[in-house]
C-alpha cells in the first residue's frame, strides 16, 4: 500500500496548511522581541515589550485582567471537572436510566452550538434572572461551557476501565464511596487531570461569551487585549500574546503527557 506522501500535491498542501496556521504565530513571537516601536520594521532584539507588559502604562490594567482570567480559569476548571466527573460516572457506570440519550446530548450539544448563540443566550438569561453582569456572571458562564470539554477525556478514560474493579472493591467490604475514592478515582485520575487542564485552557482564552457577560469595567486577558488592539496594535500586545501562547502550550503538553502515562499502565 502506498503511503500518504505519494498522493499528488501532498507536499504543497501540507506546507500551505502549516504556513497558514503557524506563520502568524511565528511572526508574533518574533516581533514580541522587537526593539522598535513599529510593528512592521525590525529594530533589533530586545525584551523592552516584556518589561512594558509588567511595568508600562497598561500594566495595571493587564495585571488585573490576568488575575481575573487566572482565578476564573482555576475555579471554573475545578468546578466543571467535578461536575463532569460525576456526569461521566453516571453516564458510563449508571446502567440504563430514562432519558440517558437525552442527557448525553445535553452534555455534548454545547460543543456544537455556535459560541455567539450561547453568548447571547447566556446574557439574556442573566438579564432575565436579574443578575448584574460582572466577575460572577463570567465565572458561572465559564463553569457551564467548560463542562463538555472536561467531560470528554474523563468519559473516554472511564469507558476503558472495566467495571470489575469496583465490584471487587464492593465485594471486599468497601462502601460505594470507598470503591469510588480508593479504586475508581485513582484509575480515572489521568482522565480527570486531562479534563481539568483542557477546561483551564478553554476558560483562559475564551473571548466571545466572556465579552458578552462581563459587564462594564470587568476585563479578562482576552477582552483586555482586544480592547487595547482596538486603539492600534502595539508590540506589548505581541509580548502578552506570546506569554499566553506559552502557558497554553505548557498545559496542553502536560495534559498529553499525563494522558499518555495513564494509558500505558492498565
Amino acid at each position: 500500500m502506498r503511503g500518504v506522501r505519494h498522493y499528488p500535491g501532498f507536499l504543497a498542501i501540507t506546507v500551505l496548511c502549516l504556513v497558514v496556521l503557524y506563520a502568524p504565530l511565528l511572526v508574533i513571537m518574533a516581533y514580541s522581541f522587537n526593539g522598535s516601536t513599529s510593528i512592521t520594521s525590525w529594530g533589533g532584539f530586545s525584551l523592552r515589550w516584556y518589561a512594558d507588559v509588567f511595568t508600562g502604562p497598561e500594566s495595571a490594567r493587564f495585571g488585573q485582567a490576568a488575575w481575573n482570567s487566572l482565578t476564573i480559569a482555576v475555579i471554573a476548571a475545578s468546578l466543571s471537572t467535578m461536575i463532569a466527573t460525576a456526569a461521566a460516572v453516571a453516564m458510563v457506570r449508571g446502567g440504563a436510566f430514562r432519558g440517558k440519550r437525552a442527557t448525553f446530548a445535553l452534555i455534548n450539544v454545547p460543543l456544537m452550538v455556535p459560541e455567539i448563540v450561547t453568548a447571547v443566550a447566556t446574557l439574556i438569561f442573566f438579564a432575565m434572572i436579574g443578575l448584574t453582569t460582572g466577575y460572577l456572571t463570567v465565572l458561572i458562564a465559564h463553569v457551564t461551557f467548560c463542562i463538555p470539554f472536561a467531560y470528554l477525556p474523563i468519559a473516554a478514560r472511564l469507558q476503558g476501565i472495566e467495571g470489575h474493579y469496583e465490584q471487587a472493591a464492593r465485594d471486599l467490604y468497601a462502601s460505594r464511596w470507598q470503591a469510588f475514592r480508593l479504586i475508581l478515582l485513582p484509575l480515572l485520575a489521568p482522565g480527570v487531570v486531562s479534563g481539568l487542564l483542557l477546561a483551564f485552557i478553554i476558560s483562559l482564552d475564551d473571548f466571545i461569551i466572556t465579552n458578552f457577560v462581563k459587564g462594564a469595567g470587568m476585563e479578562t486577558l482576552p477582552t483586555a487585549i482586544f480592547g487595547s488592539v482596538k486603539q492600534g496594535i502595539k508590540p506589548n500586545i505581541m509580548a502578552i500574546s506570546t506569554l499566553m501562547l506559552a502557558v497554553s502550550v505548557l498545559f496542553v503538553t502536560l495534559s498529553y503527557l499525563i494522558n499518555r502515562k495513564g494509558r500505558r499502565s492498565p
Binding site: 472495566e162 470489575h164 465490584q167 471487587a168 464492593r170 465485594d171 479504586i183 499502565s265 492498565p266
Partner: peptide
C-alpha cells in the same frame, strides 16, 4: 443486602486485581 454487607468474597474470572 449490598455486596459489602455480605460475608462472602469472590474470585473473579479476570481476577480484577487493583492495578494501582
Amino acid at each position: 443486602l449490598e455486596p459489602d454487607r455480605r460475608p462472602v468474597n469472590t474470585v473473579f474470572q479476570n481476577y480484577a486485581l487493583f492495578p494501582h
